[in-house]
């Protein structure tokens, strides 16, 4: 561990209960998919990003824990707002529940909206469209210059098969703690920046019916 006293970046993950917040972090950090116990209070993860230390705070989904979130939101550089793509209500919650929290504490905080459980819902059955997701993500970042963001502030992921999970985190890290191409290769990170979502998302992974 370096001599630094505080993490270089704090990322918090918020969203309704059981949308898969912990699974998302664990897929990224441990590259595993396991069913998790409900997080009560919050859980803390650490990730090395080049020379930097990133702290990832995974918060509880239960509404009652909302009152405690100011502890976790304080000084957060980025927030991942997760919703379950197979449950549209969890998308509504991002507005109703989590926006007010972020507004008051962290104006400069980058907000990334992340749909989870993409593997559970066939594209034609989804209630929230890609456009709606992106629209919310842009609205949430109003007043923040995200022109340097290498990707859309919106992702659709599956922690089960791992799709787009690392892109979420790397996009955030690259925005908040930019690394040059040289630095990236020095620390063994992929040198291409993430731009999967600049084009239309590939739907090849979402097979219909049985295989």
């Amino acid at each position: 561990m370096s001599g630094k006293r505080k993490p270089d970046l704090k990322v918090i993950i918020m969203g309704d209960y059981a949308v898969g917040k912990t699974s998302l972090v664990c897929r990224y950090i441990e590259d595993k998919f396991i069913k998790h116990e409900p997080t009560i209070g919050a859980a803390f993860f650490l990730k090395q990003w080049g020379p930097y230390n990133v702290a990832v705070w995974d918060t509880a989904g239960d509404e009652r824990y909302t009152g405690l979130s100011h502890f976790y939101c304080r000084n957060a550089g980025a927030a991942i707002l997760a919703y379950d793509m197979s449950n549209p209500q969890t998308f509504e919650s991002l507005w109703a529940r989590f926006m007010p929290l972020l507004n008051s504490s962290t104006e400069k905080c980058l907000k990334i909206v992340v749909g989870t459980k993409m593997d559970l819902i066939p594209p034609e059955e989804r209630d929230i469209t890609l456009e709606e997701g992106r629209k919310l993500a842009h609205e949430l970042n109003e007043g923040l210059d995200i022109s340097k963001l290498a990707c859309e502030p919106y992702f659709e992921t599956s922690s089960k098969d791992g799709s787009h999970v690392s892109e979420v985190f790397e996009c955030i890290f690259q925005y908040c703690l930019p690394l040059s191409g040289d630095q990236r290769s020095k620390f063994g990170l992929s040198t291409s920046t993430v731009d999967l979502y600049e084009k239309e998302p590939k739907r090849a992974t979402a097979k219909k019916g049985c295989c």
Binding site: M1, G3, R5, K6, P7, F44, L46, N53, A55
Partner: peptide, 12 residues
């Protein structure tokens, strides 16, 4: 330990 992260880790 003198940095937030290692102490947090240790506490957990």
């Amino acid at each position: 330990k003198n940095d937030t992260i290692s102490v947090m880790r240790h506490l957990k």
